[in-house]
Nucleic acid binder design. Structure first.
Length: 503
RNA sequence: GCCGCCAUGGCGCAGUGGUAGCGCAGGGGCCUUUUAAGCCCAGGGUCGCAGGUUCGAAUCCUGCUGGCGGCACCA
């Protein structure tokens, strides 16, 4: 690095500023290749195309009087070449570059002896000197911590690793396009909330100084979107970050992206249809990203998806028939315990069912499956089944052993809603930190009348993981949350220690 | 929060109690069609941090920090 600083200073002294230089290109590397191909297909009529490209130098090879460099831009790679005899100034320029430098280059396109499309440099301009080298050029950054903490270095050193993030953007764009096409209104609701509701999770707490009041970061989008149904919007959705103060894992991050959509006058079936459509569009959008053919997708995400009731899944997988044993909760609990299923204290039949499902069934559901009819006790915002009030008109879409979507016919009975909040509040007082808090403001909205509606929430990061074949949520989040400790406080231990870098 | 594994030059890795090595990158040199170019030369590391055991510690022990994996909880 010291040598690079000297190089930069020498350039400045020689009247060639190493930064803040402009260069107008006439296309990307990919477009340059297309122009060369077109020229060749036209039987090389006339002069070869002259192009101006700009990008980062990630490979340098020189052999005496010939020098090559690999220029990478957002579209791909183009080789640069200069020879001492033919073009002394460009040759000196090219051999004086360092890996990582960002340059502009102009000249005719040719092919080398090996057939590599190559820009023969006529004019070369240094646009930004790299004082630090990229990571190792063959293996790139392998250390996971370094890759997450210094994502810019990871991505610049290994351009192919940008692809999942391009796919992510394509997926989010497709979700938005499909919802827009269906007439949903995209809205933005508060992230800072006095009462974090709409889900079961511990929130992050923060402090508003001017209000002298505690606020929480939202854990879900649900309650505000339902207020908008009350307000008269028939179809609304929000795509946004939510925050949950819970453990991390390859599939859990403290902040993640959620899509929630609400549609008046449709029930659960409408949400099934919408879910299948959105997943289908997401898959198509991701597959349309260039270079995606070799994506490793372990789960077939083509709709339609299987449907199964939770009670049936549990009965078939675990051998416990919760419906049959509903009136004998002690026996149900004993049966579950004898199979090694962990249960909360005083388990009701519903809690036995959910425990068996979550512990024994969910992770086994690889192929996308709509899991239907969750019990009321764990579904405080969902409408009851008309023919069985113990269960709700809810589903979760599970794929790859993980919940991807949670949806239901929304409860619009303010009396029932109040009772369920009270029940949740009792659990909260009993120490359940994730029980839903009482929310009078939301109840007041419901009391004005909310149309019957279906609602769904989709974990965008998980969808992106499934669609791109990523093993960890951190592989589809650009800058994942990491602990900030002494040892990992900054990117460069040498500089943090105050010593001079030894590069 | 608990359990296990990991941490060695800028990056990728080797080194299991006896003077820290290799490749890439960086520096110097050779080479006019290279593709992780090749060849020669010379550099660069308080082995994550702090203690301990030992004549002697990268190596064994303890604690701490960070990461990864699992459990618990959730999407």
């Amino acid at each position: 690095m010291a040598a690079r600083r000297r190089t930069a200073e020498a350039l400045r002294a020689a009247g060639t500023p190493p930064w803040n230089v402009d260069f107008t290109r006439d296309g990307t590397a990919l477009e340059a290749l297309r122009r060369l191909t077109a020229y060749e297909q036209a039987d090389r009529a006339g002069e070869p195309p002259v192009v101006r490209v700009a990008g980062r130098i990630l490979g340098l090879r020189s052999s005496g009087g010939l020098a090559f460099a690999d220029l990478h831009d957002e579209s791909g790679r183009l080789q640069l070449m200069a020879d001492r005899g033919g073009a002394p100034a460009p040759f000196e320029w090219l051999t004086g570059l360092d890996l990582g430098d960002i340059v502009g280059a102009a000249g005719p396109l040719v092919r080398t002896r090996r057939g590599e499309p190559t820009l023969r440099v006529g004019e070369g301009v240094l646009l930004a000197k790299a004082l630090r080298p990229p990571a190792e050029k063959f293996h790139g950054l392998r250390d996971r911590e370094a890759r997450y903490r210094r994502r810019h270095l990871d991505l610049l050193s290994t351009p192919g690793r940008r692809r999942p993030f391009v796919q992510r953007a394509a997926i989010i764009g497709a979700l938005r396009a499909e919802l827009d096409r269906r007439g949903f209104l995209e809205v933005e609701t508060p992230i800072l909330q006095p009462i974090p509701g709409g889900g079961r999770a511990r929130p992050f707490a923060t402090r508003h100084h001017a209000f002298d009041q505690d606020l929480f970061l939202r854990i879900a989008l649900e309650l505000h979107l339902k207020r908008l149904l009350v307000a008269g919007f028939g179809r609304v959705y929000e795509l946004g970050r939510v925050f949950r103060n819970e453990g991390l894992s390859p599939r859990h991050a403290p902040e993640f992206t959620m899509l929630e959509a609400y549609q008046a006058h449709v029930g659960r079936e409408g949400m099934v249809e919408l879910t299948e459509a959105l997943v289908g569009k997401a898959v198509a959008a991701a597959d349309a990203v260039p270079g995606t053919a070799e994506t490793e997708r372990t789960v077939d995400l083509r709709p339609p998806f299987r449907r199964a009731r939770m009670v049936d899944l549990v009965r078939d997988a675990v051998g416990i028939d919760v419906l049959a044993g509903w009136d004998a909760p002690e026996e149900l609990a004993a049966a579950a315990r004898s199979l090694g299923v962990g249960l909360p204290p005083d388990p009701t039949p519903a809690l036995v069912l959910v425990a068996c499902y979550e512990e024994r069934v969910e992770r086994t559901l690889e192929a996308p499956t709509f899991v239907l009819d969750h019990p009321v006790e764990t579904s405080p915002l969902a409408r009851r089944l008309p023919d069985d009030p113990r269960f709700t008109e809810r589903f979760e879409l599970v794929a790859g052993g993980r919940e991807l979507v949670n949806a239901f016919a929304e409860l619009n009975d303010p009396v029932d809603q109040r009772e369920r909040f009270l029940e949740q509040a009792r659990r909260r007082e009993a120490g359940d930190l994730e029980a839903h808090p009482m929310d009078e403001d939301f109840l007041e909205a419901l009391e004005h009348g909310m149309p019957p509606a279906g609602g769904m929430g989709l974990g965008v990061d998980r969808l992106v993981m499934l669609v791109t074949g990523a093993a960890a949520i951190r592989d589809v989040v650009l800058f994942p949350t990491l602990r900030q400790g002494e040892a990992g406080a900054g990117p460069d231990p040498a500089e943090r220690a105050g010593g001079s870098p030894t590069l």
